[in-house]
Structure formats: structure tokens, C-alpha cells
């Protein structure tokens, strides 16, 4: 798999990896990275088109309300298969390991999600057996007025207190963070008719 077919080449140099490694580990409130324009524009369009053919089922519980695809690892769609091939390729795993210094096995999960008006994801830490890195690719732009920002909580004395970092989705951006008991995060409620479309999942270790 050639990473530069999908990924903005500026992220693929050795020098850049080292910088990202430093930024990832020092970012507060817990290790994370936001990589704007990570995906190439034509790939964003391609993913959006192919997600249009996927079935999104409404999901709701005490913790969340949004629509989601089934686990896309079992998809027959050629674009999504190629994208999964990219994410689980030795080159991509190597890149993620270099940046995060977290040992990964190569196993991933991937879901498409659509949040629309009043949808949300309340604070939680994502911890589940084997999950090491949570990642999300934003496929469209939102503005502050639309809601839908990702919020990362500051944790003091094992208690999350306030949102210390906030990210408004922009098409092509990749965000990922280390999953731990510190990784309390939320997706703020969508406030308008603008949808929030993402591909997200976890790297396992």
C-alpha cells in the first residue's frame, strides 16, 4: 500500500513523524493529534460518495444518539476495502507506532457515523479490551454554530472536570488519541441541519 496515494505527502517524511511524535505526547489534556488535510481531497470525495451507498442505522442509549454503519471491515465496497487496507497496512501501522510509541497489532475497527440535529455522544473514555488508539476522519466541514465539536476533558484526581481541548470537524482532518482512563471525550450536540460525517474506529494492541 502506498500511503501517498491517500495521504497528504507532507505527513510522510521522517522529519515530520518525529515532530508529530513530540506533539502527540505533549498535547494536553492527554496525548492526541489533530492532522488537518491529512486525506487528499479526491479521496474525501470518494469516501463520501461510497458512504452514501452504505446503510446507517440509528443508535441510541444513555450515552449517545447517532446513526452508524455496521463494522466496515466486512464491506464489499471497493473504496472502503482500499481505505481499510490503507489503515491496516504495515506502513500505516508503522507510522502510527512511530508517532504514538504505542505497540499495535494491526487489528482495527472502522465505522461510518452520521450525527444530525440533536445527536450527541456524552463523556466516556472508550476503554475496551485491546483498544489502544481511537481515530476519526472528518469528511465534511462544520462551523461553531453547527455543534458537533469533539471535546477532550481535563482529568484531575481521576475526575474529569472541564473540556480542555476542542475540535470542530473539517473535511480531511484526522484526529487520534491514546485510549486510557484519562481519555474522557465527548461529541457535542449537533445544533443545525448540517450533518457530521465521519469514519472512525480503533487501533488494537
Amino acid at each position: 500500500m502506498t500511503l501517498n496515494k491517500w495521504i497528504n505527502p507532507e505527513y510522510l517524511s521522517e522529519e515530520k513523524s518525529k515532530k508529530l511524535q513530540s506533539t502527540f505526547s505533549s498535547n494536553q489534556p492527554f496525548p492526541h493529534l489533530e492532522l488537518p488535510h491529512f486525506l487528499k481531497q479526491e479521496k474525501i470525495i470518494s469516501l463520501l460518495q461510497t458512504l452514501g451507498d452504505q446503510e446507517f442505522a440509528p443508535h441510541h442509549s444513555d450515552l449517545f444518539q447517532f446513526a452508524q454503519t455496521k463494522d466496515l471491515l466486512y464491506t464489499d465496497d471497493p473504496v472502503l476495502k482500499e481505505f481499510i487496507g490503507l489503515l491496516s497496512s504495515p506502513e500505516m501501522i508503522d507510522l502510527m507506532q512511530k508517532i504514538t510509541k504505542i505497540k499495535l497489532k494491526g487489528k482495527i475497527d472502522l465505522f461510518g457515523s452520521i450525527y444530525q440535529d440533536t445527536d450527541y455522544l456524552l463523556p466516556h473514555d472508550d476503554q475496551l479490551s485491546g483498544r489502544k488508539i481511537a481515530f476519526m476522519f472528518y469528511l465534511n466541514d462544520l462551523e461553531e454554530k453547527d455543534g458537533g465539536a469533539l471535546g477532550l476533558y481535563e482529568v484531575k484526581n481521576k475526575t474529569p472536570s472541564k473540556i480542555a481541548a476542542r475540535f470542530i470537524p473539517k473535511a480531511g482532518t484526522l484526529i487520534f488519541f491514546a485510549v486510557s482512563d484519562l481519555s474522557i471525550h465527548t461529541v457535542e450536540e449537533i445544533l443545525t441541519d448540517t450533518q457530521r460525517i465521519t469514519l472512525s474506529g480503533w487501533y488494537y494492541g
Binding site: 444513555d62 444518539q65 440533536t118 450527541y120 456524552l122 455543534g147 450536540e189 445544533l191
Partner: peptide, 9 residues
């Protein structure tokens, strides 16, 4: 029991 999130409406 839980209390469902109260939305912006």
C-alpha cells in the same frame, strides 16, 4: 435508570 440527554430544542 438514566435521564436521557435534554437537547437544544
Amino acid at each position: 435508570k438514566y435521564f436521557q440527554y435534554a437537547n437544544h430544542y
